[in-house]
Simulated scan of single mutants.
Amino acid sequence: MGKFPAWLRKTRDSLQGTSRPSTPPNPQAHTNTDIGPSENPPIPPFPDGVKVLHDCPNATVDICFVHGLTGDRESAWTADGQSAPWPKTLLPPKLEKARILTYGYDAYIVRKGVASSNRLIDHATNLLIDLTTDRVCCNAPSRPIIFVVHSLGGLVCKQAVLLSRNNPESHLRGIFDCTIGIIFMGTPHRGAWLADWVKIPASALGLVKSVNKSLLGILQTDSQALELIQVNFCSMIRERQMANQPPEVACFFEELPLVGVGRVVSKESATLEGYNPITIHANHRDMVRFASAEENGFKRVLGELVRWVSQVGKKNKPIASKKILG
């Protein structure tokens, strides 16, 4: 995205609060028995921020994809054997008036080299600011937006929408005002699955060494911060629905276990009360990697997107299958 203007840097600081002292490094987190720290190869830049997968000059809606744990903004959505993510190859022919974006942030809680020390609120703040900046630069700050989010990306998205709501910076309120739908895919709304996350062998994920403890902390089952995000989000959705306003919500859950690990996010944690749970016949990793438009998982996600996009411009008209959170 380039350098942030002064007003964006000021906004970022106001959202994140006063700076805190840096945590002393944990020497054990970077222990390497093969080579010394000075001989470690440099870590390549992480592909973060907004990337346009498909531009559309006369777009009526933005669709933004936010990946989950251990993913990045393109590979997380790319099926094995495919050269490009399906939002770039499969969606444009189906949604001709949609501008399709993907958002990247360093979601590796364990990875070779150094993991990001950003907290959930930091990632959410970055998403809010980067997406706002992109839409302003495209002269489309009021264009309707739909999020498709996977795993941890769902928590980042929920926090970003909540940060946008009633934000003191008027330009940042646009994300909340313009969000018409959120598709959650394997998102741990209740966090129960992460009690066992740290037990997953690093080799099963292809990752080793450094740990982002701040992310692990908020993703624990008893995390009060996670519960607060959930309570505030559900309250916001209920309030909007009672006023017959968006966003719409759809919840997808994984049907198959991850080899050597099991089901990463349970159906109970991946769904919200009052919404029909929708299944994807895949494991947690592959549930967001479609190779063909003929896959049922893709058709189910597309069905939600088409239904919501068709409602753009139809203000105050309820969708028949809308549910109210209990």
Rank of each mutant, 00 (worst) to 15 (best):
A6C: 09
R9V: 11
S14M: 11
L15D: 05
G17N: 04
S19T: 11
P27H: 13
A29G: 07
H30V: 13
G36D: 14
I43P: 10
P44V: 06
V52N: 00
P57C: 05
N58T: 13
T60N: 04
V61G: 08
D62Q: 03
E74W: 02
A84M: 05
W86I: 00
P87G: 02
L95I: 00
I100K: 00
S116K: 01
R119V: 08
L120R: 02
L127G: 10
L131R: 01
L131T: 10
T133A: 14
D134H: 14
S142L: 11
R143Q: 07
P144V: 03
L155K: 07
Q159L: 08
L162I: 09
H171E: 12
I175C: 08
G186A: 06
S203P: 02
S203G: 01
G206P: 00
S210Y: 04
V211N: 10
N212K: 04
L215K: 05
L219R: 06
S223A: 02
Q224W: 09
E227G: 11
L228V: 11
I237G: 03
R238H: 06
R240E: 07
N244Q: 13
P246D: 06
A250L: 12
V259D: 15
K267T: 02
A270Q: 00
T279K: 14
R285N: 11
F290W: 07
G297N: 06
F298D: 00
V301W: 04
L302N: 03
E304F: 15
V306T: 07
K314Q: 15
K322H: 14
L325V: 12
G326E: 14
